[in-house]
Design a protein around this nucleic acid. Structure first.
Length: 428
RNA sequence: GGAGACGUGGCCGAGUGGUCGAAGGCACUCCCCUGCUAAGGGAGCAUUCUGUCAAAACCUGGAUCCAGGGUUCGAAUCCCUGCGUCUCCGCCA
């Protein structure tokens, strides 16, 4: 959420920055809401002040045993007007809040302007795509050959866009997650956390999924009618750890790593990436989250992105690092790097990690603060990034490490997890 | 699932409808005193919104004692609902 004061005081500037994202801020609508708010709120508060002071007088008079009927009559006359004014305010504020809640974050000044993904800027490439002297198979064929990837059975059990992994594929998938957790917790200084996979609407609001993106979520209706949502990313439960908290500055930065399944309805993506594991309703991801001092978030973004890159580098997977342009960034992000891994079967780079600094955008929604040098509560900055998407990493390993006979060489850093083995084949 | 108890500031804890945003204690900050890592004295110490202001500070006012409703001129205090915690029983591990 944006700072209300910024909207009030620098509306043209906000509108201009949002326009770079392709978002049109209805400034006239905001000004109308703000004018109405100011009128109704000040009127309501004046009436409340009057009511409070008269009621206090009643108490004083009665305490002295004197007659309070004159004051009571006066305050009685206020009742209707006050109730009406409070009702007006109660009607207006949700509209006001709803307006502000769907305004995206302002892009950082270092973010290039652009309409869509074609405006993204390649920052660097790492590694060289391998030359194959045989026809490459895609991960679906490779996984099937290994006897461990079965989408038909997954459909029988559940629905399309789910996968059934077994044997060596399931094991490789599990090992990848464990490798990432080990790396981030032992070498990069993150605290591993285990979190609920179902979260309440407040948490979804806090990180920005609600109210605007409900259609992307799976939701669960409980017997009492209340709602829980399946997490679309561990970012939601992990970042919400600090919701409503005022942290002591010395605990910063908080760094969490968390492995969870992620559930996305993928509404609106019909027909895209229908083959294979690239786009699933459920996928595993190891997420990095940092809660930092506001002056430290930009260096933290570089650091966090580097931690995600380290996974790719250690797995020796070629990738490129993209700086997203204004038009391609997510709702709450001020700046985002995407990491894209090379997929031989698609002959292209595909997103495998997205690392963002949200500055105060999520913290304001969550009221996540720390005590600053003046001992006053001040909003934190939040960041998160995939480190990495496990399903897509599995795809990348299968495709990049495939051999002519359909077996898969095991990346060096993973071999300890396989008892030193160097090759995965059907026998697993 | 059944029965009961409870939800107050960073923590503990008082508060039985009226000047309570809230006694007292602990912790913390500042000052004084003190020659010895102790003790004593004084002061301060919730959050948030709003008005004024270019802005900040100050100041004005509103709101907040789990949440949401209700009763009342007035609610931390009474009533209802929900959520949470604890204890006992049942159930399942």
């Amino acid at each position: 959420m944006l700072d209300i004061q910024l909207l009030r005081n620098q509306l043209p500037f906000v509108a201009e920055r949002l326009a770079t994202r392709g978002v049109t801020l209805d400034t006239a609508a905001f000004e109308a809401l703000e004018a109405e708010r100011k009128l109704i709120q000040t009127r309501t508060q004046d009436l409340q002040a009057r009511r409070n002071s008269l009621s206090k007088q009643v108490g004083i008079l009665k305490g002295k045993g004197e007659d309070a009927s004159a004051v009571l009559a006066e305050v009685a006359g206020l009742g209707g007007e006050l109730a009406a004014s409070e009702a007006d305010l109660a009607e207006l504020m949700p509209r006001f809040d709803a307006f502000v809640a769907v305004i995206p974050n302002l892009p950082h000044e270092s973010v290039p302007s652009g309409k869509d993904e074609t405006g993204n800027v390649e920052v660097m490439r790492w590694g060289t795509p391998r030359e194959f002297d045989f026809d490459v198979k895609d991960h679906v064929d490779l996984g099937s050959n290994l006897g461990g990837l079965d989408f038909e059975t997954a459909v029988k059990i559940s629905a399309s866009r789910f996968a059934l992994m077994s044997g060596n594929v399931a094991r490789l998938h599990r090992v990848l997650a464990q490798f990432m957790l080990d790396l981030h917790s032992k070498r990069h200084g993150y605290c591993e956390v285990g979190v609920p996979y179902l979260v309440n609407p407040d948490s979804m609001f806090g990180t920005g999924q609600l109210p605007k993106f409900e259609e992307d979520l799976f939701r669960v209706v409980r017997s009492d009618g209340s709602l829980l949502y399946l997490i679309p990313t561990a970012e939601v439960p992990v970042t919400n750890i600090v919701r409503g908290e005022i942290l002591a500055p010395e605990v910063l930065p908080l760094k969490f790593v968390c492995h969870t399944p992620c559930f996305r309805s993928e509404a609106g993506s019909y027909g895209r990436d229908t083959r294979g594991m690239i786009r699933q309703h459920q996928f595993d991801k190891v997420e990095l989250v940092q809660i930092v001092h506001p002056e430290k978030s930009w260096e933290a973004l570089e650091q966090l992105t580097g931690h995600a890159e380290a996974v790719l580098q250690m797995l020796e997977l070629p990738y490129r690092k993209m700086l997203l342009c204004t038009g391609d960034m997510g709702f709450g992000a001020a700046k985002t790097y995407d990491l894209e891994v090379w997929l031989p079967a698609q002959n292209t780079y595909r997103e495998i990690s997205s690392c963002s600094n949200y500055e105060t955008f999520q913290a304001r929604r969550m009221q996540a603060r720390y005590r600053n040098e003046k001992n006053k509560p001040e909003l934190l900055h939040t960041l998160n990034g995939s480190g990495l998407a496990v399903g897509r990493t599995l795809v990348a390993i299968l495709e990049n490490y495939q051999n002519a006979d359909g077996s898969i060489s095991i990346p060096t850093v993973l071999r300890p997890y396989f008892g030193g083995a160097e090759l995965l084949d059907k026998t697993g």
